[in-house]
């Protein structure tokens, strides 16, 4: 099952989260600011996931200049949706 939040629109990021059986968080990121902010974006995704107790799964993200709080909101949305579905 995949969970999506956000859109490919200016200032936003589209995130697809897929829970997996692996023991790590995998991130596939597409962004025009990879060289400058790629690592930071990955860190925000990983840290937000961990703050919700998620240590595994695949995140596919298409970024169009999302600020950190937008990233956090979008990651939180997919994780909460996944948790809700798992109940």
């Amino acid at each position: 099952m995949k969970y999506t939040a956000g859109k490919s629109q200016r200032g936003d990021i589209e995130i697809i989260y897929e829970p997996t059986q692996k023991k790590n968080i995998e991130i596939e990121l597409e962004t025009s600011v990879e060289r400058l902010y790629g690592e930071q974006i990955r860190a925000v995704i990983t840290n937000t996931a961990k703050s919700f107790g998620i240590n595994s799964g695949k995140f596919s993200a298409v970024d169009d200049g999302a600020l950190p709080y937008v990233l956090r909101a979008r990651v939180e949305a997919v994780i909460r949706a996944a948790k809700e579905a798992a109940k």
């Binding site: 939040a5 956000g6 709080y69 937008v70 909101a73 979008r74 949305a77 909460r80 949706a81």
Partner: peptide, 15 residues
Amino acid sequence: KFDTRILVREILKNV
């Protein structure tokens, strides 16, 4: 609706 209310919460807190 679900995603947006989380985003709006973050906008209120950060902008």
